[in-house]
Write a protein that binds this DNA or RNA. Structure first.
Lengths: 106, 106
DNA sequence: CGTCATGTATGATGTAAATCGTACCTGCTG
DNA sequence: CAGCAGGTACGATTTACATCATACATGACG
């Protein structure tokens, strides 16, 4: 079951929710940035996004609730990390698809 | 360039549009049904969908303009076919991801 | 030719989503 | 303690989308 922050377990992840999350260009940008360095952990503010703080929070929540990222609350800030292992287990081809896209985006 | 029916060339396909198209459960259902038999060609009415004709037309257009299916106008009816080869060339992992989902849906 | 089936086009409607401003919370730091 | 920076929560707005009803086009069939 999802934890109090809304992180779903791998078997709770739904491909439809994942697709919907990745349909937005800003969210794809976040995910691709996190893929740039495996196991990379970045704060929410460490992304160059053309939206305000409130919208940023919204996008991170969508990604978190879809299961794409894991967020850790540090009190006054939050870290973000791609859920590599969980995604590899649940949707192995998804990571390859995104990786290919990251390569093509150069 | 896209033809008069709106079929994009492989290099015109965008992953964001693909994701948006596949975010809808009805459209996923159509694609998975087309994947059931490779090179399968089916008429629009040959899908069991809980929507009216107009909505059906809408979904087929979204899939077509995303590049997922190819439609052929027969005047009085239309055939639908998954663009297997084009997708394999442009997003090879996407087909595997969908195939895995089709298997899991049984 | 009239009718029927398949599908599209258009306009309307309801709902979901993206965005923002503002207020608020939390932990540093002077 | 006072201020500040990172984030969230909430409400408002605007836009996009899924859906449908209706009207129309096309080709088959009697």
């Amino acid at each position: 079951m999802a934890d109090e922050m809304g992180h779903p377990e791998p078997d709770e992840m739904e491909i439809g929710t994942i697709f919907a999350a990745l349909a937005d260009p800003i969210r794809r940008r976040i995910v691709l940035a996190l893929m740039a360095d495996r196991d990379g952990i970045r704060h929410c503010s460490a992304f160059d996004l053309p939206v305000t703080k409130a919208t940023r929070t919204h996008h991170f929540r969508v990604l978190r609730e879809a299961g794409l990222i894991r967020q850790v609350d540090l009190g006054n800030s939050r870290t973000n990390q791609l859920r590599w292992a969980d995604l590899e287990q649940r949707f192995p081809d998804l990571l390859r698809l995104l990786a290919a896209e990251a390569g093509a985006a150069e």
